Simulated scan of single mutants.
Amino acid sequence: MKKLYKQEVLTLFGKRIKELRLERNLSYRKMAKECDLGYSKISKIEKGEVEIRFYTILEISIALKVHPKELFDFEHKWKDEAFM
Score class of each variant (00 low, 15 high):
residue 20 L to G: 06
residue 31 M to G: 06
residue 65 K to R: 15
residue 57 I to H: 03
residue 3 K to Y: 04
residue 84 M to V: 12
residue 46 E to K: 09
residue 81 E to G: 03
residue 39 Y to H: 15
residue 72 F to L: 10
residue 21 R to P: 08
residue 12 L to C: 13
residue 25 N to A: 14
residue 45 I to N: 02
residue 70 E to Y: 00
residue 26 L to P: 04
residue 16 R to P: 01
residue 48 G to A: 05
residue 53 R to I: 01
residue 42 I to F: 03
residue 76 H to I: 15
residue 52 I to P: 03
residue 26 L to E: 04
residue 76 H to C: 14
residue 65 K to Q: 15
residue 79 K to E: 15
residue 26 L to A: 07
residue 7 Q to P: 02
residue 78 W to D: 06
residue 42 I to N: 05
residue 83 F to D: 13
residue 10 L to K: 12
residue 23 E to G: 03
residue 30 K to D: 14
residue 14 G to S: 09
residue 36 D to A: 12
residue 40 S to K: 05
residue 26 L to G: 09
residue 80 D to N: 09
residue 49 E to H: 07
residue 56 T to D: 11
residue 72 F to Y: 09
residue 79 K to G: 02
residue 43 S to H: 14
residue 6 K to F: 06
residue 18 K to T: 02
residue 63 A to V: 01
residue 24 R to C: 02
residue 44 K to T: 04
residue 55 Y to C: 00
residue 74 F to T: 00
residue 3 K to V: 08
residue 82 A to C: 12
residue 7 Q to Y: 09
residue 61 S to N: 06
residue 26 L to R: 08
residue 54 F to D: 08
residue 50 V to E: 12
residue 6 K to Q: 11
residue 65 K to S: 15
residue 24 R to D: 02
residue 55 Y to N: 05
residue 26 L to M: 13
residue 21 R to F: 01
residue 39 Y to G: 01
residue 52 I to M: 07
residue 25 N to H: 12
residue 78 W to P: 00
residue 17 I to H: 03
residue 49 E to R: 06
residue 8 E to P: 04
residue 71 L to I: 04
residue 36 D to Q: 13
residue 40 S to E: 12
residue 41 K to M: 12
residue 80 D to F: 06
residue 27 S to L: 07
residue 58 L to P: 05
residue 6 K to E: 13
residue 43 S to A: 14
residue 36 D to F: 07
residue 1 M to E: 10
residue 83 F to Q: 13
residue 50 V to C: 07
residue 16 R to D: 01
residue 15 K to S: 07
residue 50 V to Y: 12
residue 19 E to R: 09
residue 57 I to R: 04
residue 15 K to C: 01
residue 64 L to T: 04
residue 77 K to A: 08
residue 19 E to T: 11
residue 25 N to K: 13
residue 83 F to V: 11
residue 27 S to Y: 03
residue 82 A to M: 10
residue 30 K to H: 08
